[in-house]
């Protein structure tokens, strides 16, 4: 099983930080215009949110794993709900590599695998180096072409 790049934790922590900042801003707004919120409580709530977020990011990194198996791309992920997904290569419609602004700064990239399914129709593997992402994309594309089914929808 392959783990994600350790820097992905920074991405998730950054996302948490943004959320915590938004939460803080909302609380400040509530304090200003609606009901007074004690400063200690405000800081406390934001701090708890941030700590929970960081713990979540660390745990998610520990859990997130994927593997190219004989017939399918296999992924394990999820802190609250643990999900094991198999995406058979035959079912791969197309494969993207993507990166957002924070990922770009961190030098990370994601691979998104699309199937024709209704739910889980797109499976994202975040936290890959751009090089690894491109290699994975190529491999998946080759495997998908190799095993193409004749019963396309």
């Amino acid at each position: 099983m392959e783990s994600l790049h350790p820097r992905i934790r920074l991405l998730w922590i950054a996302q948490t930080a943004i959320l915590a900042a938004v939460l803080g801003a909302v609380l400040v707004a509530v304090d200003r215009w609606l009901v007074p919120v004690p400063t200690a409580g405000l800081v406390g709530i934001v701090a708890v949110a941030a700590v929970l977020g960081i713990a979540y990011a660390v745990r998610l990194y520990q859990i997130w794993q994927f593997e190219l198996q004989g017939d399918a791309l296999y992924l394990e992920r999820g802190v609250i709900t643990f999900v094991e997904t198999a995406v058979p290569f035959v079912r791969v419609q197309h494969v993207d590599t993507q990166f957002g602004p924070i990922e770009r700064v961190l030098g990370l990239s994601s691979v998104v695998v699309y199937t024709a399914g209704s739910r889980n129709a797109d499976v994202r593997i975040p936290g890959l180096t751009p090089d690894r992402a491109r290699r994975l994309q190529d491999t998946l594309r080759e495997l998908a072409v190799e095993s193409e089914a004749d019963d396309a929808v």
């Binding site: 709900t81 643990f82 999900v83 997904t85 198999a86 058979p88 024709a116 399914g117 889980n120 019963d151």
Partner: peptide, 15 residues
């Protein structure tokens, strides 16, 4: 032969 993906899901309670 119509399966697209299969996922096993477990929430904390289910675990």
């Amino acid at each position: 032969f119509r399966i697209q993906t299969v996922s096993t899901r477990r929430s904390i309670f289910q675990r």
